[in-house]
Amino acid sequence: MFSPSDLFEIPFGDWIDAGVKDWLVPNFRPLFRSMQVPISWVLDGLDAFLNAMPMLLFAAILTLIAWRTAGRGVAIFTALALVFLDLIGVWSQTMTTLAMIVTAVFFCALIGIPLGILGARNDRFMSVLRPILDIMQTIPPFVYLVPIVMLFGVGTVPGVIATIIFALPPIIRLTNLGIRGVRSDLVEAAYAFGSTPRQVLWEVQFPLALRTIMAGLNQTLMMALSMAVIAALIGAGGLGLTVNTGLGRLDVGTAMEGGVGIVILAIILDRITQSFAERKSVKTPSLLATFKSYFSPAGRTASAPADKPAPSAR
């Protein structure tokens, strides 16, 4: 049976290979190297800080945050789970993974929220961005591990960079969605009173989109955690390395210790960040207060409406 490849074949793989090895790496390696400086700065600082902190102190702080944002149940779970991680001997790896995840999410937010806002305000920009996001979300991470190693080398920082690429799309998409989803008559009203586009963004659009953006942050965080094991393939440490070590030695126990650590970290971080997205962020007078409200006890906010006569259901 005839097929087009009988006539000729496209050496697609060779082209990509040559493009990366002969053009991208020799010409841009220093540029990419310099790009990893801020990441490694944040990561190293965070890693050193978390690993230097006494285990009990950190567990107490995280439990407190969980209690104030997500309620008593999550706080109890957090305390017990963190003690368990210490008892099975993966505390230090957990802190390294946490440092990687927080760094990755920090840079995702730093890049993703402005891109999402830009996309919401400019249809043409979004139409360019959307296919790129589609590629980022569907391409298997293993495909870009090799070029990352070539450009950035091996280690935890390249692992974080791979994680950023993998976890970036949700925060961009949901920021875009959140800003676009702000009621058009509110935006119109803001303009009608003489706001500049910047004032419309910061006074109306961003505060009202914040819940959706927080949902995006939660998604990004979960995706970053799921990259922990893959990032370990290119030399990142932490729980992912524990899993890979167990895998290499066919040591089910060691792999499971790392796996349980990732799962527990995921549950704690998910519950805390989800409470950000679920919080009634609309009832706050300013952006600062919105952020502040995330750190007021969940119990107090829940009982607050009782002080006033309940508004009639509408």
């Binding site: 009621r183 008559d185 509110l186 119109e188 009203a189 803001a190 009608a192 009173f193 003489g194 006074e203 109306v204 505060p207 009202l208 962020s281 609309v282 009832k283 706050t284 007078p285 919105t290």
Partner: peptide, 16 residues
């Protein structure tokens, strides 16, 4: 800012 203000059909009050 100085001369024309507007009142909207569905009020368009900022909920936050």
């Amino acid at each position: 800012r100085e001369k024309v203000a507007m009142v909207f059909q569905h009020f368009a009050l900022f909920p936050h």
